[in-house]
């Protein structure tokens, strides 16, 4: 899995490409660490090219959300596929995140 982080005006964008599964999670967790510095602002998690998310991936998203909430920031998940949306729904996390 590849994570590309970029900035667009006041937003920080993290683009996830590939499968966010258990083997990929440690590397992804490390790759998104810089986002914590922008936790007070708006962070976009762009999932347009994400094909799968596991529990480990959900935990990474939850960690980012926690940092964002405690810093008064905002996390937006963008362009998830129906399969991934279903994972959020059946784990009960669908209404926890702002999903566009």
């Amino acid at each position: 899995m590849e994570v590309i982080i970029s900035k667009n005006n006041s937003e920080t964008i993290a683009e996830f490409i590939g499968r966010l599964d258990t083997p990929a999670s440690p590397e992804v967790a490390k790759a998104v660490e810089p986002l914590m510095q922008d936790a007070a602002g708006t962070i976009i998690l762009d999932c347009t090219q994400m094909s799968y998310i596991s529990s480990s991936g959900l935990r990474i998203f939850l960690t980012l959300r926690k940092a964002s909430v405690s810093n008064g920031g905002r996390i937006i998940i963008r362009n998830i596929s129906n399969d991934i949306r279903q994972v959020f729904m059946m784990t009960g996390f669908l209404n926890l995140f702002e999903i566009e």
């Binding site: 596991s54 529990s55 959900l58 935990r59 939850l62 994972v87 059946m90 784990t91 009960g92 926890l96």
Partner: peptide
């Protein structure tokens, strides 16, 4: 049929 091992308390 999944290996999802984290659930929200809203489940």
């Amino acid at each position: 049929l999944t290996d999802l091992d984290i659930l929200a308390s809203s489940i």
